[in-house]
């Protein structure tokens, strides 16, 4: 790359970018958030690795295995609640396209309600198990089971808070650059929870039920 041979015309060369408008704030932000989402995915990957190691028969010690307590169709309802919440959030984003404020707010509200439904179903399920004496303290296997499912639930909880915050910000501030950027980030966060749920549902609940 030595450029000493090439003759450079000092009148033509551009040393300063006259027309540089600065970076694209929204995509920088969403890209940064996508980085976070991927590192969160790594967190789940690690939990899955741990779950894999702790889901042998001996991992459940003398306690019950998921085959004995998972109710597939119940959890399927949970799945639908989450998927619908994500869908409705998507509608909010579609309304954002034409700057439709009430559309965005309604979409966020719908996503919020369905998200709460998901969480309520999850809590109900946990209470059912705990009442039956199936708790994380029983065995390493159950610890891993609870960990994976409840870490996901914690993400949902955080997402719900975030949705509430965004409802407020949309209502108060309208579609500023900040708000729009956050809405896109939240969309990725929320959809990502649905993606992780597919793995959890299939590999923890269904597979656990099978084996």
């Amino acid at each position: 790359m030595s450029s000493s041979e090439t003759v450079v015309d000092p009148d033509k060369v551009r040393l300063w970018s006259e027309d540089y408008e600065g970076h694209d704030v929204i995509s920088t932000r969403t890209f940064g958030f996508w980085m976070y989402v991927l590192s969160d995915a790594m967190l789940f990957a690690t939990l899955f690795a741990a779950y894999g190691v702790l889901s042998y028969p001996h991992s459940y010690y003398t306690g019950p295995t998921p085959a004995q307590f998972v109710a597939p169709w119940y959890t399927f309802v949970q799945t639908m609640a989450l998927f619908l919440s994500v869908l409705v959030y998507g509608w909010a984003m579609a309304s954002l396209k034409d700057g439709n404020k009430s559309g965005v707010i309604n979409g966020l509200l719908g996503a919020l309600v369905l998200g709460i439904l998901f969480l309520a179903l999850d809590i109900h399920d946990v209470m059912r198990l705990v009442a039956a004496g199936i708790t994380p303290e029983v065995s390493g296997g159950l610890s891993a089971f609870y960990c994976l499912t409840q870490v996901h639930a914690a993400h949902i909880f955080a997402g719900l808070i975030w949705i509430i915050v965004m409802l407020w910000q949309v209502a108060r501030k309208g579609f500023t650059e900040d708000v729009v950027g956050r809405l896109i980030s939240l969309r990725m966060f929320w959809q990502f929870q649905a993606v992780m749920w597919v793995f959890i549902y299939v590999f923890v609940y269904l597979w656990g039920y099978m084996s």
């Binding site: 704030v25 984003m93 579609f175 896109i184």
Partner: peptide, 29 residues
């Protein structure tokens, strides 16, 4: 950094939202 004057709603990452696409993804999943 000087994007303040542009309407953020016109940003391509907003405009790429699609009801059809989200619906398709939902149904398939």
């Amino acid at each position: 950094m000087s994007h303040g004057h542009v309407n953020p709603i016109d940003h391509p990452e907003v405009q790429m939202a699609s009801r059809r696409g989200y619906m398709t993804g939902f149904i398939l999943a």
